[in-house]
Amino acid sequence: MDRSQFLVGLSVALFCLGLLGVIVRRNALVMLMCMELMVNAVVLSLVTYAARAGSTAGAAYVFLIFVVAAAEIAIAIPIVLLLVRQRRTLDVGAYTGLGG
């Protein structure tokens, strides 16, 4: 197995672990962190291919992804804090009635 294939396999494993975490964990913050793990897994495969192709565009794209991920967290955490302020819990099972 060559190196790139191994790293893409690692990215698949990390993505699946992150997805599992998002589905099975109850704590809203832990779910957010598992989503970050999924983003990191996808970035790993992008970096693997970009490094293999020697592409500067890939590296610039990774920088943009990092900034967007930081922005996503900066929006998601205030929303979680608001939910905690209203419902007094981080348990996503308690957030019923969020529709509409």
């Binding site: 993505f15 699946c16 672990l17 997805l19 599992l20 589905i23 099975v24 964990r25 109850r26 704590n27 809203a28 832990v30 819990t89 981080l90 348990d91 996503v92 099972g93």
Partner: peptide
């Protein structure tokens, strides 16, 4: 918080199945 004590929701089995299939 209660979510600190009980780690997993009741989606544990379907979630594990989904991740395994993926």
């Amino acid at each position: 918080d209660p979510s600190f004590v009980a780690r997993y929701s009741r989606l544990l089995l379907p979630g594990a199945l989904t991740a395994a299939v993926l």
